[in-house]
């Protein structure tokens, strides 16, 4: 076991990348995510029609050469709407998660590292926070701030704070008690260096995985907000809102809900698989 040695030194990033590359599912997911991001960025060039171009003669049209995925009730091209929708859904998922992660990880780290009263107060506040149903909180916040995509992102991000905070704290607690933290103190490493070099690298893996799951959850929560009119405002397309709009006519025109639903599923799955792969790649104990 100990006979194996890595002869060439690589940076941490290069090492993680090398491990990640060996994970096929994660690489495919990464490819899909990059593709979705590119589609979102270049939607103006990729979409065959504007997302709000209506043509009532094409109401509920089946897929054809002109409209590959058919049209919705108002005769808008589904494919174009899905391409433009990637923008809103990605922004919702990634943006809200980023907000929750930044605040949550900071709060969790403080609670976990300092412990004592700081920890007790912060975690009890989180308890109170979590006693409010998450979606209710989203709706209330979004309603107070006014309906728009930006506010929906903020609302979801704020409502999601306790998740990463809790995971980060628990994870730090297990690392903090280990002797290598004391060893670091004994060699004059300051608090900042100990947190950055010794605690975070050992504590971050579960948080990363949960965040990728959160991206999917937030995309769904955003869809919910859009559905009740608090998220993306029509006629701007959003995948979740598209599914919601299509639910009345699901029996007759099932594909209307199917395509955006599939998009949500593929995106969510990709983020989850990438998160799994990233966790494995970040852990040197799982040699692969």
């Amino acid at each position: 076991m100990s006979e194996i040695a890595i002869s060439k030194r690589r940076s941490r990033f290069a090492e993680t990348w090398r491990r990640l590359k060996k994970n096929k599912a994660a690489m495919i997911s990464l490819f899909v995510i990059i593709a979705i991001i590119l589609i979102a960025i270049f939607a103006d060039f990729l979409a065959p029609y504007p997302y709000d171009l209506q043509d009532y003669s094409l109401s509920y049209a089946k897929s054809s050469r002109e409209h590959l995925l058919g049209c919705d009730k108002l005769g808008r091209d589904i494919l174009s709407r899905i391409i433009y929708g990637a923008r809103q859904s990605l922004q919702l998922g990634v943006g809200a998660t980023a907000i929750a992660a930044c605040i949550g990880i900071t709060i969790g780290s403080i609670a976990g590292y300092y412990g004592g009263w700081t920890d007790i107060i912060i975690m009890r506040l989180m308890d109170i926070y979590q006693s409010i149903p998450m979606f209710m909180l989203c709706v209330t916040l979004a309603a107070v701030m006014g309906p728009s995509l930006k506010n929906a992102i903020l609302a979801i991000g704020i409502a999601m704070i306790p998740g990463p905070a809790r995971i980060m704290r628990a994870s730090i607690l297990t690392v903090r008690g280990q002797e290598f933290i004391e060893a670091a103190k004994a060699i004059n490493a300051g608090s900042f260096r100990i947190i950055r070099e010794h605690i975070i690298p050992n504590a971050i893996a579960p948080v990363i995985v949960s965040l990728t799951m959160n991206i999917s959850m937030n995309i769904l929560a955003g869809a919910g907000l859009s559905f009740i009119g608090l998220g993306a405002q029509p006629p701007i397309p959003e995948w979740g809102a598209m599914v919601s709009e299509a639910r009345h006519v699901m029996r007759d025109h099932g594909t209307l809900a199917l395509y955006p639903g599939l998009c949500i599923m593929i995106t969510v799955l990709s983020f989850s698989l990438l998160g799994d792969g990233l966790r494995d790649a970040l852990d040197p104990r799982l040699r692969n």
């Binding site: 280990q178 002797e179 290598f180 670091a184 060699i187 004059n188 050992n202």
Partner: peptide, 20 residues
Amino acid sequence: REDMQIIFQDPYSSLNPRKT
């Protein structure tokens, strides 16, 4: 601390698993 050092009991938890 440059003059005084410590060797720990548990060689498993005394080394950071993510450092070579």
